[in-house]
Structures are given as structure tokens and as C-alpha cells.
Design a protein around this nucleic acid. Structure first.
Lengths: 180, 180
DNA sequence: TTCATTTATTATCCTTTGTTAACGCCACAT
DNA sequence: ATGTGGCGTTAACAAAGGATAATAAATGAA
């Protein structure tokens, strides 16, 4: 990437910090922001009736995430995005990002190959895990794919991500430890 | 879209027909083909040990599908893609499609907004259905979203897509009909 | 049409999960 | 240090799902 283009990108990038528990994106927000996590941990979640939260996904260092409902569907966010630890991000408005990338073939490739594909891949492989694996196998895969996360993320969030209850996750862990 | 560009696209598009049961893409294939279904029905599936098949997804008229493992991950296909009815498709090699779209801003937008987003949307919403819904609710949503498909697709395939067994799907249907 | 094969339903049994609640533990704030 | 609230585990029960097999229904081929 040449220097002028790099600068053009950087002018549009903001660095932000969030304390543990702070909300990055609220339900109803229509901001097209794209985030890259430099440090920390973020979860997306919905609030069901009466303060019952369900975590949809967890994002860690060097991962890209975005307000999916807005960027993908053009709708207000149905999720909250919350920092689980003190978290530092780079953020850029998606349309600014698109504009820049469409003016530059290298960036275009980056956009298409990195940003786009990463998000598709994650979703696609996650669907595969639901169709082909049992909850127990899904947990084993999660541990294998995210060995460091399990010590940083409360189990109840991981259970939600796997599509099961925290109680069931606890039993699965128990079962696995007995098998060895 | 202007005429020269349209012609350039059309030169790369092939029309193909497949009989019921015929395979469009085999496991191991590394073809970057993108398909648009004009008529008919296609399913993707894996073969587990000893001729046990699990259907991953079903595609109907006017839907776009592709050899996801190859186009997204650069790997050989893990799925078979099979016509469930006599099926007519338009097909184009993905790199030819990319080349064309990158030379034309309208097509580029089409590619990004239609092809890419449709696939992301499908996967994303499917993950949501696994995280937030029970198997029974997932089935209800499937019926609502695909009212015509349930009469054309064998239940055993739908069960797989929902991440449950055919026996369980039958019980769910029974339960629902009793509730009314 | 008839026969053979596939598919859907139902039954049985066993395992897993959901729900609710109790208990102990840990982190955190006071 | 001492509560306090939140979290993970465990228990008990009910509901649902998986596996297998038998039967009924539907499909397709001859």
C-alpha cells in the first residue's frame, strides 16, 4: 500500500477505549461502524423479556466485528456490543471504508478477502458446527479453536454461544472430565 | 448496466440442466463455480461413515449458491451438491465473475451487495436461529420462511438442515398439530 | 397395476437438555 | 475483615431428543 492511501485510511480511523462493562453499540443503533480489536474482549448479546440476556458471539484480539444488522441488513442493531474487559479498538465508519477501498485495488482486495470473507467464514463454520456436531462436540471444538478464551470468558456466555444453557455446559464439562 | 458489459457477462455465463438426483458438485471438487437457480431445487450434503448422509442446506429458485469451501476457503469441497428435482441453472466461474465486476462499478456493487450479502445474511440468520430458538421454533420459522419448500423437500432433509433427526422432526410436527 | 424401495410415523428405551432451586465459592465493594 | 451479589456446580424433576425397530404410507420402477 502506498503512503497517500495509507494516510487516507488513517485519517478516517479512530482509536477508542472502553472500560469493562461499557457498551460499544446499543440496540437500535444504526451506526455503520467497523471495529478492529487491538486489546480486550467484546460480546454481542440480546436482552429477552425481563432482563434475561443471551450472548450471541464473542470477539477477541485482532478480530474484526461490526454492527451486523446495520452493515449487512441496513437495519438498526438488535444486539448490544459490550466490552468484557478493558478494550482498545480501531474503528472506522463502514461507508468511509468502502469508499477508500473502492478507490484502491489493493485495499479492495483486502476488503473483499479479509473483511468480507472472515465474517462469512465465521458464520458458515458456525452453522456447520450446529448441523454436524452435538453440543458436547461443539464445546470441544470451541475449546480447541479458542484455547485462551475459556479462561477469560464466563461460562454462561460461552453456553449461549454454543446454543445451550449454562447448567448444561457445566454437565458437559463434568462428563468430559470423567471420561479421562 | 450498459450493453457491452452485459455481453461481457453473458459470454461467461453457461446454462446447464440437471436431472433429478444428479450431482452438480462433488466432494473434492475445487471448481469456483457460482450458480443461480432458474428452476428446480438443490441440496448440499456430506456423506458420513457408511453411506449416512447429512443435508446441510437447500437452495431453491432464484437463489445463488456456490462451492462454499472452495470460493470462501480456497479448499476442495466437503459437500456434494445434488439436484432434488430437474434443475436449470445459470453458472459462471467465480474468478471470471470477479474480474468482470471489478471492471465495472455497477457490477461491483451488484457483486458486493447481492452476491456477498445474500450469502452472509443467510448464514448469519441461520446462526441466530440456532442460538435463540428451540428446534420446534426453528421448524416453525423454517415453515414461515419457506412455505412452499416443505411440500417439495423430504422431511429427512429438512430435519438435517434444522440440526435434528427425522424422527424428532416428526414428533415436533405431531406436537404442533395437537396444539391447534 | 403390482412390487420393491424409500420415507414418515409411532413406539420403546435411554440419554441429554431445560428449568428451578440450593449450595458453596470467589471477587468485589464497603 | 465482612458482607453481598454473581457465578459455577449439583440435584431433582419434567420435557425433549437420539437410537433403534416396527409399521404404515408414499414413491418409483417394471
Amino acid at each position: 500500500m502506498n503512503i497517500p492511501n495509507l494516510l487516507a485510511v488513517l485519517r478516517n480511523v479512530r482509536m477508542k477505549s472502553f472500560d469493562k462493562g461499557e457498551i460499544l453499540i446499543r440496540v437500535g443503533s444504526a451506526k455503520n461502524d467497523v471495529f478492529f480489536i487491538r486489546k480486550g474482549l467484546v460480546r454481542s448479546y440480546v436482552v429477552e423479556k425481563e432482563a434475561n440476556e443471551i450472548t450471541f458471539q464473542i470477539y477477541a484480539e485482532h478480530q474484526v466485528f461490526t454492527n451486523a444488522h446495520t452493515v449487512l441488513f441496513g437495519e438498526p442493531s438488535k444486539f448490544y456490543y459490550q466490552a468484557l474487559e478493558h478494550t482498545k479498538v480501531y474503528t472506522i465508519e463502514y461507508n468511509a471504508f468502502l469508499k477508500l477501498t473502492s478507490q484502491n485495488s489493493e485495499l479492495l482486495e483486502l476488503n473483499r478477502s479479509y473483511f468480507g470473507k472472515k465474517i462469512i467464514q465465521q458464520a458458515f463454520q458456525r452453522v456447520e458446527s450446529f448441523v454436524f456436531l452435538s453440543p458436547e462436540e461443539r464445546y470441544q471444538k470451541f475449546v480447541k479453536d479458542n484455547p485462551k478464551l475459556i479462561h477469560r470468558v464466563p461460562d454462561k456466555y460461552i453456553a449461549n454461544v454454543l446454543g445451550i444453557t449454562p447448567v448444561s455446559l457445566s454437565r458437559i464439562r463434568n462428563r468430559i472430565s470423567k471420561k479421562k
